[in-house]
Design a protein around this nucleic acid. Structure first.
Lengths: 97, 97
DNA sequence: ACGATAGGCAAGTAGCCACTTGCCTATCAA
DNA sequence: TTGATAGGCAAGTGGCTACTTGCCTATCGT
């Protein structure tokens, strides 16, 4: 859903998570939490990060794979190409809410 | 401001306005209102559109010029290039809210 | 000058969203 | 099996935001 993509990008914390996954894809929830805290000074609860990841997954920006008790998160930037092409290239309008 | 850009893109009505300005740049507030109604079926008040345009202008996506009692709105897509390059190319992370 | 058109300002409201809190399930190590 | 680790679910709360309403200013045509 196109709507989900823009909603996902609207939050600064989610953008930092994308930065984190750009730096190292395939992190678990706890890894992401730790790196948000240590490298970005973000004091944020595990649930908050979990909810952000769900939003990013709904937007197609993150894919997940389960391995035992771990769940790894991988970045998928393909939806992003798709977004700028809407206005940078002469393309027809899309959603009408 | 980077934050303003993503916030601006988060709203579906604002994205349709960008579509409208992509189709024809330099429209006045009333023109945009009319075309949102006729071409997109959006029953939206003039003030709402005005506020949306202010948000788009704060994001740098729209520039305005006054001529008499008219105020024309022009599209500027440059901030958009800037946004996807953050994750599509190996670039350093940015905002930490 | 007067009415009509184009737009601005400000306050109020309703709905959404990020975040927390509390509890629960599942996997692994000892 | 027990405890610890990794994650999920659900309800509640505070703040932000899109939209409306009402009134005001400025420019143009006649």
């Amino acid at each position: 859903m196109e709507e989900d993509l823009f909603k996902a990008l609207a939050d600064p914390t989610r953008r930092v998570i994308l930065d984190e996954l750009t730096d190292r894809s395939g992190q678990s929830l706890f890894e992401i939490c730790a790196r948000l805290a240590t490298r970005h000074g973000l004091a944020i609860s595990r649930q908050a990060v979990s909810q952000h990841l769900a939003v990013l997954e709904a937007a197609g920006l993150v894919t997940t794979r389960r391995e035992g008790r771990y769940k790894f998160h991988d970045l998928d930037t393909r939806p992003l190409e798709h977004i700028v092409s809407r206005w940078l290239t002469p393309a027809p309008p899309e959603d009408t809410p």
